[in-house]
Design a protein around this nucleic acid. Structure first.
Length: 322
DNA sequence: AACAGAGCCAACCGCAAACAC
DNA sequence: GGTGTTTGCGGTTGGCTCTGT
């Protein structure tokens, strides 16, 4: 589906700088059209990115430089990765957020193809939702502990389970079916599936329309993380990852530099062990979660079904006891 | 079928740091 | 060093889609 209408295009932005308005005159705002995307992509392909205000003017776009930059970085860039946040990415986000807080751009640097905006949205919509369900503040120690000692280990388990399932499946087949997200309203088919090269045509213009429901591609480790349509493996897990190993055996990252964190290099073995008495009020959480029959591994769920109502009730009791 | 509410995400806003002159 | 401009970041919002009634 293409969103061709542009609303509220003549209001000058209060945050737009004076120079912006002087340069731009009648500015467009709101959703980008296919034509605008096309102009921006082609201009950057020819002249490169940067100098966004002059870029916007020279490309014939009635947009602010900021708007062009944002559109490029968050949407049109060839290496932008779209679709569901994978389990590994969720784990990475939780871990990095626990280190750095709302430093979205910094977190995004460790998640190739993901934008700060996307991670921020993920955090606000998914993680904060869980905090709300637990009736605690997302920045509270209780919630942070819950993430660290319950949510993250659970993610690790799911990753391990999915990796084991993948290993079993790939021993008999090497083809994966990829579902594109239904909400990919207006995307640009900006990569050639075979080559990964930039394709200079907005989504819906050329024939490689990956916004449609299903794409089947040959699945190899080489293309698993970069191909345009690899973005939405439902509950996908990359075939090769340090996280697929037993996390209790992963060497602990002892580097004290808070900035030290390499993608795929995670040491959870100590950080995820519950402090004494944290969840030992006579309940076996692991037994409970296994008996509650959640986490359908191939249901397309990512995090929303992480906890069922019993889990939430239980967690609330635990939090109240702290 | 129609409506309401929730969820989601692209885009905007305001600010500050970095940069250019 | 001062000033204006550009860039980048994090917070917020508006509107579309989905889901339940």
């Amino acid at each position: 589906m293409l969103m061709m209408d542009v609303k509220g295009n003549s209001n000058s932005s209060s945050s737009t700088t004076q120079s912006d308005e002087e340069m731009m005159g009648d500015l467009r705002r709101g959703p980008w059209t296919v034509e605008e995307d096309f102009k921006l992509i082609n201009y950057i392909a020819t002249h490169g990115e940067g100098r966004w205000n002059s870029l916007a003017r020279c490309a014939g776009l009635k947009r602010t430089g900021k708007s062009c930059r944002l559109r490029w970085l968050n949407y049109l860039r060839p290496d932008v990765r779209r679709g569901n946040i994978t389990l590994e990415e969720q784990l990475m986000i939780l871990e990095l957020h626990s280190r750095w807080g709302n430093r979205w751009s910094k977190i995004a640097q460790h998640l190739p193809g993901r934008t700060d905006n996307e991670i921020k949205n993920y955090w606000r919509t998914r993680v904060q939702k869980h905090a709300k369900q637990l009736k605690c503040d997302v920045n509270s120690k209780q919630f942070k502990d819950t993430m660290r000692y319950l949510w993250m280990p659970r993610l690790v388990e799911r990753i391990q389970a999915a990796a084991a399932a993948t290993a079993t499946n790939t021993s008999s087949t090497s083809t994966a079916t990829v579902s594109a997200p239904a909400t990919n309203q207006h995307s640009i088919s900006n990569r050639d599936v075979g080559t990964g090269n930039l394709v200079m045509a907005p989504h819906g213009i050329n024939g490689n329309d990956f916004g449609v429901s299903h794409v089947t591609q040959s699945y190899t480790p080489e293309n698993s993380s970069t191909a345009a349509s690899s973005d939405s493996f439902a509950t996908q897990v990359s075939p090769v990852s340090d996280l697929t190993t037993d996390y209790y055996n992963i060497p602990v990252n002892r580097n004290t530099n808070p900035d030290y964190f390499q993608a795929g290099q995670v040491g959870y073995s100590e950080s995820m062990i519950s402090p004494p008495g944290f969840f030992n009020h006579g309940l076996d959480f692991q037994a409970m979660e296994h008996s509650s029959n959640q986490w359908p591994m191939d249901s397309g769920d990512t995090s929303d079904n992480m906890w069922n109502l019993e889990d939430i009730w239980f967690l609330q009791q635990q939090l109240n006891n702290l």
